[in-house]
């Protein structure tokens, strides 16, 4: 009983790490442009396929992933400049629909270039498992969690300790005043989207070895990630990570111990939890309350 419980928690944390990676990308975009990018998962799938192609032609997997991350950053910035820029000043309503359009388009493009048959993706970490107090943890899961922690640390440093981070925060907070103080707002918005796309590419590369790679690989993960980002308050990277881990663990426990939920319906648990929490705390678990002046 106890070892099963521990195993469920550990597996939940491992899944949570994956949701967290994509959730962080969503938070980055929201911090930069105040939008929720429903296409974040589809963009990440495109990146992962790109890495897969490079791996197929003989590049070592880590190199392929690194190159992909750089390319994704450029592509993410391009998407912001060419498509998103046009809708930033508009309503939130249109913004959501634009990213939904991108979601459909990118999924279709991935299908066009790489087909809909699932392919295998190389793992960055060795096979095998580690026994921690009776629970088995794969090196892959440990690696994913480690990478995630590094990313969170990196983002905190970026936002809190660098000039770029300060400028990014300023733009997210008040684009007009930032512009007046000489900050190149447009470029920074591109940086925000580029960083998010790079993070998405990393998330894709971490997830793909666990499931198989196909254009719809991240559809479900996107929903988890969105739930985590919203629960975490949309502006707090740490909040998103904690929420994602929590989601991973809670859904695993609920799926196992509450028989009526089971494995197939466990995805309902985080979504319903999100719904309830949003009603009680619309700003999320860790978010700052927004005050709207009319």
């Amino acid at each position: 009983m106890d070892s099963i419980f521990l195993q469920l928690v550990v597996d939940g944390l491992a899944n949570g790490a994956i949701y967290a990676a994509l959730a962080l990308a969503i938070v980055l975009v929201h911090r930069a442009t105040g939008m929720i990018n429903f296409a974040q998962g589809a963009m990440a799938v495109m990146s992962t396929f790109l890495a897969w192609s490079m791996w197929q032609v003989g590049l070592p997997a880590p190199v392929a992933i690194l190159v992909t991350i750089v390319i994704s950053m450029v592509m993410g910035a391009a998407v912001e400049r060419l498509v998103i820029r046009r809708f930033e000043q508009g309503s939130e309503h249109t913004a959501v629909i634009v990213t939904v359009g991108l979601l459909v388009l990118f999924t279709g493009l991935a299908g066009l270039f790489w087909g809909y048959t699932a392919v295998e993706f190389p793992s960055l970490f060795p096979l095998g498992t580690l026994n921690i107090a009776g629970a088995f943890v794969s090196y892959q899961s440990l690696g994913n969690i480690a990478v995630l922690l590094l990313v969170v640390l990196g983002l905190q440093l970026l936002f809190k300790k660098t000039k770029l981070g300060l400028a990014l925060r300023a733009v997210a907070d008040n684009p007009e005043s930032s512009s007046l103080s000489g900050i190149p707002v447009g470029n920074l918005l591109m940086v925000g989207w580029g960083l998010a796309a790079a993070l998405g590419a990393l998330a894709g590369a971490l997830i793909a070895p666990k499931v198989f790679l196909d254009p719809h690989m991240l559809d479900q993960v996107l929903v988890y990630a969105l739930a985590a980002a919203i629960l975490g308050g949309l502006n707090s990277p740490l909040g998103a990570v904690v929420a994602a881990m929590l989601i991973g663990v809670v859904e695993n426990l609920a799926g196992h111990y509450i028989t009526i939920i089971g494995d197939d319906l466990k995805i309902a648990v985080p979504l319903i939890a999100m719904f309830i929490i949003l009603l009680v705390r619309p700003q999320g678990l860790f978010g700052q309350k927004e005050v709207v002046r009319v």
């Binding site: 939008m35 929720i36 429903f38 939130e92 309503h93 959501v96 479900q220 929903v223 969105l226 739930a227 919203i230 089971g262 197939d264 319906l265 995805i267 309902a268 979504l271 319903i272 999100m274 719904f275 949003l278 009603l279 619309p282």
Partner: peptide, 28 residues
């Protein structure tokens, strides 16, 4: 009744959840 209290993207998120829950439910 509860959902429309949410704004913009949050309500999009709640509505996108409906088919995702309905799908396994229908299979069950």
């Amino acid at each position: 009744l509860p959902a429309v209290r949410l704004k913009g993207a949050s309500i999009a998120m709640v509505t996108i959840s409906l088919p995702i829950i309905a799908d396994p439910l229908a299979k069950r």
